[in-house]
Amino acid sequence: MTDPQCLLNPATNLLSAWTSVAGLTIQVSATAIIISALIGIPFGTWLAMNQFRGRQVLSIVLYAGMGMPPVVVGLIIFMLLSRAGPLGGLGWLFTPAAMVLAQVIISLPFVVVLTKTSVEGISSSVSEQLRSLGATDRQIARAVLWEARFGVLVAILAGFGRVISEVGAVMLVGGNIDGQTRVLTTAIVLETRRGQFEQAIILGAILVGVTLMIFAFVLHLSQRTRQTSV
C-alpha cells in the first residue's frame, strides 16, 4: 500500500478498485458472449439441420475447438493485433476490444457445439411433423430452436463460464493494465505473485459471486418461462 491515497483510506480505495475490476470483467465477458451467441446460435442450428459434405469434419474441428488452450488463442490474437502483425493498424492490442475478441473465439466452439447438439436432440421428430404440415425451412428452424431453447441457454452459460474465468489469453492481449484492462482473473494472478493471498482469495470469491448471481438470474428466468409456457 504505497499509494498515498491508499494510506489515507485503504478500505474505500480497495473497494472501489475491486468494483471497477469486477465491472470491467462483466463488460468484457458479457460483450463477448453476446457476440458469440449472435454468431454461434444461428451457425449451430444450421449445422444441426443441414446435411452437406464435410459436415463431419467441421463438427470434429468444432469439438476440438472446445479443447483449444485459451493461451494459444491469446497468442495468435496477440500476433495478429501487434503493430508488427497484419491487424496492427486497428490499435486494439492492450485494450478491452482485444480481450473481447479473444473471448469470442474461445467461447464460440462451446456455443456452436452445444446449440447443435440440443437442436439435434429435437430436430428430427419435430421437423418431420412440421414439414408434413407444410412449414417452410425457416419456420421449422425457428420452431426447433424454440423447442431447444433451454439447451441453447446452457450453451451460452457454458461459454460465459469459460471466458469469465479464463486468465491466460486476457493477460497476453490485455496486458493487465491497472484501470484499463485488469479483470478479476488477472488481478488474482498479480496478487498471488505479490504474496497477497488474502486479496487473491477475496477477488476469487468476488468472481464466483458474480458468476453465481448471473447464472442464478438466468436460470430463474428460464424456470419462469418454462412454467408459463406449459
Binding site: 471497477s20 465491472g23 462483466i26 478491452p96
Partner: peptide
C-alpha cells in the same frame, strides 16, 4: 451491461 459500464472502464471499446 449498464452495471458493467457504471462500474467498469468508461473508455470501454
Amino acid at each position: 451491461l449498464l452495471a458493467g459500464y457504471v462500474t467498469g472502464t468508461p473508455a470501454f471499446l
